[in-house]
């Protein structure tokens, strides 16, 4: 297969950046998208050109590191996969593929296609945990949890923090990411103690980071590689408003 690749190149955060177009031949349909970029990079190195920098690590769709905005969609045209799991068989031979970094004020560009997603870490630090110290916890089976609740919490917990939701959202909103964690912990008995405080703090941090607001377009959920459901956002709205109205201070 043969492709024309239109890739965003930007040396560092200060650099202005611009698109650069590359021709790439001899691509196998069994290659993953990142393996295709590997091939391009080997060719660039061969020509003494700086290879395209991008974030990637596990290459099995779970670490959440890879983050390419491909042909107008985060992680490309396929549903339920990350960029590393996207294979070239999903593209037409001869196609022009536009590859851009995640675009959001809260995700500054590090280099080329790699962005800084530490805003997500700070949102979790604001309250995405249950405050238990190591040791001294009750037996794991002491509190039964209905299977349906555990499953629902699990579904929210599968978020990989890749940021595709922010990238897909026309407002660069992080509501799906934040709501996934708020939901998971608000559903489980272990998360009840800090439930309202958590929702308030995480939402405040989310706003602080400069993410946009939710317009309920559903683009985040549609593009989410783990299919995190929009109902989580509704749940977070409930949790947040309930917390604000119901809390003592």
């Amino acid at each position: 297969m043969k492709f024309k690749l239109k890739i965003w190149r930007q040396k560092n955060n200060q650099d202005k950046g611009a698109f650069k177009t590359y021709e790439l031949d001899g691509v196998s349909s069994d290659m993953s998208f990142l393996e295709m970029i590997d091939v391009l990079n080997e060719q660039l190195i061969d020509k003494d050109e700086d290879p395209v920098h991008f974030d990637h690590d596990c290459r099995e769709g779970i670490c959440g590191m890879c983050s390419m905005y491909i042909n107008g969609e985060p992680h490309g045209p396929l549903r339920g996969v990350t960029t590393c799991q996207l294979h070239m068989r999903s593209f037409q031979d001869g196609e022009t593929i536009t590859i851009e970094p995640w675009r959001a004020k809260a995700f500054p560009i590090v280099k080329d296609l790699a962005v800084d997603r530490s805003a997500f870490d700070r949102v979790i630090q604001a309250g995405g945990y249950v405050s238990v110290n190591t040791g001294g916890t009750p037996d794991a089976n002491e509190i039964p949890i209905p299977k349906s609740v555990a499953d629902e919490a699990f579904n929210a917990a599968t978020c990989i923090g890749c940021g595709a939701c922010v990238a897909a959202c026309k407002n660069a909103s992080a509501m799906l990411f934040v709501s996934a964690k708020v939901s998971q912990l608000s559903m489980l008995p272990q998360g009840q103690v800090e439930r309202s405080e958590r929702a308030e703090k995480m939402v405040a941090q989310m706003d602080e980071e400069g993410f946009g607001a939710c317009t309920n377009t559903g683009a985040c959920s549609a593009e989410c590689p783990k299919g995190i459901d929009l109902s989580n956002i509704a749940r977070m709205n409930r949790e947040y408003l309930g917390a604000k109205v119901g809390s003592q201070s």
């Binding site: 945990y129 249950v130 794991a140 509190i143 299977k147 555990a150 919490a153 917990a157 272990q190 998360g191």
Partner: peptide
């Protein structure tokens, strides 16, 4: 025990146990 206390959603049986 530690992980359950942290909110790790392990698989459960219908009776609610792990």
């Amino acid at each position: 025990d530690q992980c359950v206390a942290q909110g790790v959603p392990f698989a459960r049986e219908y009776g609610g146990l792990l």
